[in-house]
Each structure stands twice: as structure tokens, then as C-alpha cells.
Computed example of a mutant assay.
Amino acid sequence: MCEISSSICTSPIGLLSLTYCSKGLHFIGQIKSINDESFLPDENQTVEIQSWHGKLTMPESCLNWLRTYFHTPKKLTKTPELCPNVASEKGSFQESVWRALLDNVHFGQTITYGQLAELAGNKKAARAAGTAMLRNPFQIIVPCHRVIRSNGDIGNYSGGTRNLVKLWLLKHEKQ
């Protein structure tokens, strides 16, 4: 059982909510009120902890990774630790999809749902790969924004509620 702490931090894509334990991250994503209608990116916004609750402060490795991702991406290094209780369902296709995406699709690259399904071990499971992306609790870190449809469309980021965020992230990575 994990003892959970949480933080809210500022970022160029708005406030991020994070939950974590001593083993790593459980969740990172924009606060619920951010959607296509309320999204106001600010590429100059720094990444800083705004508040935290629990015994642990936000892991420094995660804070540094986010700062680097948004402001000096060419210096990106090792991904922050993800709690194995969340990231790992031994043998599950969902875990295989997350791992394939994290390990193979790098900053500035994109991949289709079908290609990702094949990387994860089942080339006929493009829809299941899409479901794994919808369930991804590690926004940006496990970069579901890099997964697009085979026709080049961006798909439905966060169930279609944050497509402008996905477009911003893809543009950010192409600069």
C-alpha cells in the first residue's frame, strides 16, 4: 500500500496535479478545469510547486524533468520514477503499450495507434492502444500526445476535451 502525497504546480500548459509516493509518481495531469475552452498556454510560465499535501514533497527528479521538458528540452534526461503499483500490471497489454511508447517514441516524434499496438505486441489492437492512452495517468511523461491516427488526425486527447493541449505539445516538440 502506498502512502500518497500530492502537489499542484504551475506549467506552460496550466496547473498540473501530481500524486506520488516514495516509489514514484501515481498521476500527473492538468487540473480538471482545463479544457479546449479554458486552455491558455504561456510558454514563459515557470514550473514551480504551488501547493502540496501529505508527508512527501514533489520528487525533485519530476520537478526538474518538467522544467527541462518545457524550457530546455534538448537536455531531457531520465524519466521520473513511476510507482510500479500504478505503472505495472505484469503482462497486461496496457502496460506493454505504455512501456513501448515511453521507450520508443521520443521527443518530437509521433506514432500511429496501429504502430504503437504493433510495438506493444499486437498489431491488430489499435483500438486497445487508444484505450490504453485514454487510461494513461502520466500525461507528458508517458507521451500519449505523440500518438496520432493513421490518417494524420490527432485523435481525441483526454477524450477529445483537450485537443488544443495536444496540438500545443506537438508544436512545442517540433520547435
Rank of each mutant, 00 (worst) to 15 (best):
I8N: 12
G121I: 11
L56W: 05
L102T: 12
A125R: 01
S17G: 11
A132G: 06
W65T: 01
T68I: 03
V86H: 07
M58L: 15
D42N: 15
F138W: 09
S33D: 09
A128M: 11
Y113H: 14
A117G: 10
K23I: 00
S38P: 02
V105S: 07
E37A: 14
I111F: 07
N85C: 13
E118F: 06
G91C: 10
Q175C: 04
G159W: 05
P73M: 05
P137G: 12
P80N: 10
S38H: 05
P73T: 01
P80H: 08
T10M: 01
G159H: 10
Y20H: 14
N151C: 11
T79V: 09
I141Y: 01
K166V: 03
N156T: 10
S33F: 13
D153Y: 06
L134R: 13
G130T: 12
D42L: 08
E173M: 02
K123E: 15
C9G: 08
W98I: 07
N35Q: 10
L82P: 00
R149G: 00
L16I: 06
Q94S: 13
L101G: 07
T131A: 14
G121N: 12
T10R: 10
S92C: 10
S158W: 07
Q109W: 00
E3N: 13
H71E: 03
K32Q: 14
I49T: 09
L170E: 06
V105H: 10
G152N: 13
K124W: 11
Q50L: 12
S7L: 06
L16E: 04
S33A: 10
F138S: 01
W168E: 02
N136Q: 05
L167N: 08
T112F: 08
K124E: 13
I34V: 14
S22L: 07
I49H: 02
K75S: 13
Y20G: 10
L169G: 01
L16W: 04
P80R: 04
V47P: 00
L63W: 00
K174Q: 14
L18W: 05
C9I: 14
K174A: 12
K23Y: 12
M58I: 15
V147I: 13
K123I: 04
L63C: 06
V97G: 06
A132N: 08
E3S: 15
G155W: 09
A87W: 02
L76C: 05
N122Y: 04
I4T: 15
P137M: 09
C62H: 00
P137H: 10
C2S: 15
L170P: 01
F138L: 09
S6R: 14
A117H: 06
Q175S: 09
C144A: 15
F39W: 05
G160A: 12
C2G: 11
K32L: 11
G108H: 12
H26K: 10
N64P: 00
L164S: 15
C2Q: 11
A120D: 07
F93V: 04
C62M: 06
P143Y: 03
L18D: 02
N156Y: 11
G114H: 04
E81Y: 03
E173D: 04
G91K: 06
T110N: 12
G121R: 08
L116K: 05
I28C: 02
S96F: 02
S61K: 04
F93D: 09
A100L: 02
